[in-house]
Design a protein around this nucleic acid. Sequence first.
DNA 1: GGACCATACCGCCATC
DNA 2: AGGATGGCGGTATGGT
Length: 324
Amino acid sequence: MLSPHRVVAVAYQGLCTFEFGIVVEVFGLPRPEVTVPWYRFKVCSLEAGPVRATGGVTVQAVGGLNAVRRAHTIVIPGWRDADERPPDVLLDALRRAHRRGARIVSICSGVFVLAAAGLLDGKRATTHWRYAERLAARFPRIRVEPDVLYVDEGQVLTSAGSAAGMDLCLHIVRSDYGAEIANQVAKRLVVPPHREGGQAQYVSASVHADATRGLARLLEWMHGGLHRNLTVEALARHARMSRRSFARRFRAETGTTPHRWLTHQRLLAAQRRLESTDESVDEIAEHVGMQTAATLRHHFRASFRTSPTAYRRRFTTRSTQRSP
DNA sequence: GGACCATACCGCCATC
DNA sequence: AGGATGGCGGTATGGT
């Protein structure tokens, strides 16, 4: 961990108060309970003078975009209008920061700023489900993933709608400081340390809560028995549907396919076990329902870009520091 | 890393 | 007519 690690949030006219608040909460609060050097947080303003944020709040930042030049992490907490091209000073500042290796983060519609700067070309990204189509249409070179809470492309990270920004910020803390400290932060925020699944399930859940109830029970059942050898055939039977209808319903509700969902859950379970137990990779593979350790390693690397053992070394709850 | 086999996925169409 | 369902089969993906 670079010490101190400077995080800068960009404020602008029409600032999204909620998303901005998330960033302040996670990176900007003093954390005496954390015994290692914490982030140094700063807000910088795109426009001179106080800026109006949503809800009639006025924000007076201490400095201008200069702070971006020295930041290790830059966060764009939403953008006021998906159709408004962000000013060139901001785009240039982000491009320069990106070139020198800074980490660029967006929440919700903030992705449009990153996209306009060209930082997402050829990369995966996500945004609020309301904007996903527009993003994909306007920026065809971005691989838009509408059904996840956040996408970590290493140097560029994007998160889905509003509160998913919290998931991404916690993910960043977890990457920088390890699971134990991330859990402490989550605990103080009174949020779960790790939300699973994508935003699609929240979308349909809020649109028609009843329809999801049947499948939600099934998901819980699947989750409770990851070690079982679950075939799509068996799942469909359990849900009393044909395979075809089951697959359709599953995608509609969760935004992914049954098998992919299972694999993902298994990987998350494996992560938890790597963090909190000293089981061998073989044992973990068996426990989470991956047939063999080789299969686990394969998927683990594909998803998290490290091996299970390397992950354990980094995130085991004792040694919590690493260099970003 | 590639080859082989099994299964999962999804478009298409008929049916309820 | 129109929406949901289920079967079929070609292709993609996963597991060994």
